[in-house]
Simulated scan of single mutants.
Amino acid sequence: MSETRTLAGVHPVDLGDGVRAFFTSSAGGVSPAPWAADGGGGLNLGLNVSDDEDRVAVNRSRAADRLGAPVAFATQVHGDVVLELGPAEREAWAADRPPASAGEGDALVTAEPGLGLGVLVADCVPVLLADPVARVVAVAHAGRKGVLAGVVHRALDSLVARGADTVRVRAAVGPAVCGRCYEVPAAMRDEVAAAVPETFATTSEGTPGLDLPAGVVAQLASRGVAVTRVERCTLEDKELFSHRRASVTGVTTGRQAGVVALF
């Protein structure tokens, strides 16, 4: 695989020496509408949104080619389980037909060089984590339930258990639905904000909302982690997949990803 291959819409982030990381967009793949922003060429990386499996395999291979390493994905269930991946998974995901999933979980961690970790989203918050000194990386999928469950904390705990120091850990919080757009019932806002006050938001329409990216940034900051935030709203930005935007018109949509690997 070539680390120099281009892929449309990629947003790279710097997580330290020996680490490659980026967020994908809806562009650069082979999926047609509704798994593409403009009718075709969609980089849908999700297997649970009714897209053709062969097309998703091509899309995933393009993301892996851009990274320069195979990329493992989990079956995300809005929980706080962290899956540890190693040499066996690197070999399996480097195969001509890699597994569909590394298992059920909402965070992945590895100290294995040359194995990419991917987190799939279409409004939830993708989180990439790395300690370039301890040589360990992780990803986390933080939706409303994941923020409440503390999935970001569990991912950090897994890094620390493998030698990381939260003072050295660098995090990237990727595109997600923003507080101006994520309308929820007042009771739901109050429940989440009671646990993570920084999530409290009011939408641009003056209704109760949740700012999940702000909540994730606060959770990371509380552990002393340096954070880079990509401030793009998935609902507002037509170059990104958004489950909420698609649901308004009664269609499905694709999944973009955050990806990280050690080299």
Rank of each mutant, 00 (worst) to 15 (best):
A57C: 00
H78P: 00
R62F: 01
E84N: 12
G86L: 11
A69M: 11
A69P: 13
D52K: 02
V81W: 06
L43Y: 03
V81C: 03
V82D: 10
L47I: 06
Q76P: 02
N59K: 02
R66G: 07
R55C: 04
A64R: 04
H78G: 00
S61W: 11
P87A: 14
R62T: 02
L47S: 04
L85W: 10
A57L: 11
V49D: 14
D65R: 10
A72R: 03
G86T: 14
L85M: 05
L43T: 03
D52T: 07
V56C: 06
F73S: 07
V77H: 10
D51G: 01
G41R: 08
R62M: 10
R62I: 05
A57M: 06
D80W: 05
A72D: 04
A64S: 15
D80A: 15
D65Y: 03
V82T: 15
S50L: 09
L85G: 09
P70T: 08
G39Q: 01
N59C: 06
L83P: 11
D38A: 15
L45P: 09
V71A: 09
R62G: 02
L85N: 12
S50E: 12
R55P: 03
P87E: 14
V58F: 05
F73D: 03
L85K: 10
V56S: 04
L45W: 05
G46Y: 05
L47T: 08
N59I: 03
T75E: 15
R66N: 09
R55G: 02
N44K: 02
L43P: 06
N59W: 00
N48V: 11
L67E: 04
G39A: 01
E53C: 05
G68K: 10
A64H: 08
H78K: 13
L83K: 14
V49H: 10
A69L: 09
H78W: 12
L85E: 01
G86N: 15
G42S: 08
V56W: 01
V71D: 08
R66L: 12
G86E: 14
N44L: 06
V81R: 15
R60M: 12
A64K: 10
V58S: 04
V58K: 04
A74M: 14
D65T: 09
R55L: 01
E84Y: 09
N48L: 07
G41N: 09
L85A: 09
D54F: 09
A69S: 14
V58G: 02
V82M: 14
D65K: 07
L45M: 08
G41A: 08
G42Q: 02
G46K: 05
R62C: 07
V49S: 12
L47G: 06
R62A: 13
V71Q: 03
A57E: 04
S61M: 12
V71R: 00
D80C: 12
G86C: 15
G68E: 12
A64C: 10
G46W: 06
L85C: 10
G86W: 14
V82W: 12
G39L: 06
A72Q: 06
A72M: 05
V82C: 13
R55V: 00
A72W: 04
G68I: 12
G41C: 11
E84V: 15
L43A: 00
V81T: 14
G42N: 01
G41I: 07
R60S: 12
R55H: 04
N44D: 14
L43E: 00
A63T: 14
